[in-house]
């Protein structure tokens, strides 16, 4: 069905456990084979490129090297990891000098035919299969078919060129996919507005302001929940909210559509139980 090198990122086994679980569960159901990259390292997130371009490049290049040695395309669930890895991949592709240095340093040969995908893209690639698998499940569930605001965060579609598949201001991939599975994604204006990211610990006030605005915008658009595709976005939206608005990972919604039984366990891992926060259905 599909073989990918899975690059989970540091948050996956800690603050984003439900993301990891739902991802693995959905992929298993669809027969997508995820091989966790052996001995992967942190991508450096915003800290590496804020202090040193070289370290930022090298960290992600090492992960790419690992995937290359396995001969696999990479799939990345976290937006920041995706952004840094893609940046390194494009540099390796376009800058012969840097490529030579990194290849020598890390001991691998870069291959432009091995891709780096965000998890969203991989899921979209398997949409037909998803639909088919979902069609056999019963729709009755408190979560299925809800009105949702798809939140991409700032790093999946920016800067220009990092993501050839999506529009920078009004991306649609996640929404299209969820619509096919019976959800109602709404058009809203804060899909790519930054939540405040890595400022959370030092300037939580800035993040709180941003998060509250994002949640308010989702509400105003008529959404019952926000859907994310990034651990830090999810964490900020849940931990810095002044309210208790539901926030889901998109893979969790896929899991619901597929009728997976373990969804209950995922809700309990959230800081704000998303299902409890959903309004009653008429």
């Amino acid at each position: 069905m599909g073989q990918y090198g899975y690059y989970p990122g540091c948050s996956i086994s800690s603050s984003a456990r439900e993301y990891d679980r739902s991802t693995r569960a959905v992929c298993a159901t669809l027969g997508i084979h995820l091989t966790e990259l052996p001995d992967w390292n942190c991508c450096g997130a915003s800290s590496a490129h804020s202090l040193s371009k070289d370290i930022d490049l090298a960290l992600s290049a090492r992960n790419i090297g690992i995937a290359h040695r396995l001969g696999l395309d990479m799939v990345v669930p976290c937006a920041a990891c995706y952004n840094r890895t893609m940046h390194a991949w494009q540099t390796l592709r376009d800058d012969p000098e840097k490529r030579a240095v990194l290849q020598a340093q890390l001991g691998f040969d870069f291959r432009a035919d091995l891709q780096v995908y965000h998890l969203l893209q991989v899921m979209e690639q398997h949409l037909a299969h998803l639909k088919e698998a979902a069609a056999h499940r019963l729709p009755e569930d408190g979560v299925r078919g809800r009105r949702v605001a798809c939140y991409y965060g700032c790093l999946i579609t920016r800067p220009r060129g990092i993501n050839p598949h999506e529009d920078m201001e009004y991306p649609e991939g996640m929404g299209r996919m969820l619509a096919e599975l019976g959800y109602q994604p709404l058009r809203w204006s804060f899909a790519t507005e930054c939540c405040g990211a890595a400022l959370s610990l030092v300037r939580g006030d800035v993040v709180r302001e941003r998060v509250d605005r994002i949640i308010a915008a989702a509400r105003e658009a008529g959404a019952e929940a926000v859907v994310t595709a990034c651990p830090l976005c999810q964490l900020n939206l849940e931990s810095r909210q002044s309210d208790r608005f539901p926030v889901f990972y998109f893979t969790e919604l896929l899991g619901v559509a597929l009728g997976l039984p373990e969804t209950e366990k995922w809700w309990r891992l959230h800081l704000i139980n998303p299902v409890k926060g959903l309004p009653q259905r008429a």
Partner: peptide
């Protein structure tokens, strides 16, 4: 403090190869 955050973050990666959120947050605080 934000610079401190970044420095601690990178220090963790240098030490462990990955970030350990608990100790990062504690050290920062």
């Amino acid at each position: 403090d934000q610079r401190l955050f970044h420095r601690l973050f990178l220090r963790q990666i240098r030490l462990f190869g990955r970030v350990h959120e608990l100790s990062l947050a504690m050290a920062l605080k």
